[in-house]
């Protein structure tokens, strides 16, 4: 069964015109923003494939910027997001790559930055408003954003995964799906943990204090 809920069929509630090119794009932008954890001062967005060919008429560009400004896919302000970005002092740069590439047809790469750091996220829109984040900071992952997701950036050392799992277990949080990606042995690594329960600030704080963990982000649904 590819669809599990009746609300995949009657829904999502969204601004038009396209669930893949508008709602999905907004979700990619919002997810990037949530992982970054704050409003960036600059957003560089690269569009590939069908996104690049038809973004204008579908408002894919407005939706991505809206998401980056923390707007949900059902926020009618998405249509005004360029103006909103100017008002909030967020510089927006678009790069359009309409030629065929190895990327999925509906792919957006979003690079967010401010004076303290930057983050690069690659997302694809699967249709019906569903998305998958395929890359975070060069880590190849698969993240749907359908469940609460904990992202733990850490140094690739033994015990790091176990300690994070331990903190979740102590708080009666069940892991529904988990993957670990690393750039190379002993290098930087990323845990992507989808949970069945919501995570509190207290739990996030505990995870942050674990050895070898250097950054934590939480995506709520």
């Amino acid at each position: 069964m590819r669809y599990n809920s009746i609300f995949d069929i009657i829904g999502p509630i969204m601004v038009g015109p396209s669930s893949s090119h508008t709602a999905g794009a907004a979700r990619i932008g919002k997810t990037a923003r949530d992982i970054f954890g704050r409003q960036p001062t600059k957003a560089e967005i690269t569009l590939y494939g069908s996104f690049a060919q038809t973004y204008r008429g579908h408002g894919t560009d407005l939706a991505l910027v809206g998401g980056i400004l923390d707007l949900h896919a059902d926020d009618e302000n998405i249509v005004n997001s360029f103006q909103l970005a100017r008002e909030r002092g967020v510089e927006i740069v678009f790069k359009i790559i309409p030629e065929e590439s190895d990327y999925h047809p509906n792919t957006a790469k979003v690079r967010l930055s401010d004076h303290t750091g930057s983050l690069e996220v690659v997302g694809i829109s699967l249709g019906g408003g569903k998305i998958t984040i395929t890359e975070i900071e060069g880590f190849r992952i698969s993240l749907s954003g359908d469940s609460p997701t904990l992202l733990v950036f850490h140094h690739d050392r033994y015990g790091a995964v176990a300690r994070v799992a331990q903190v979740l277990a102590c708080n009666e949080i069940n892991i529904g799906h988990m993957e670990v990606a690393r750039k190379s042995k002993g290098d930087q690594a990323l845990m992507v943990i989808e949970t069945d329960q919501d995570l509190t600030d207290e739990i996030i704080k505990d995870v942050k204090q674990i050895d070898h963990v250097y950054s934590v982000a939480l995506l709520t649904t």
Binding site: I10, G11, P12, M14, V15, G16, G59, D74, G128
Partner: peptide
């Protein structure tokens, strides 16, 4: 770009 419900 107004608000609608995708059905389907």
């Amino acid at each position: 770009m107004g608000l609608i419900v995708a059905t389907p």
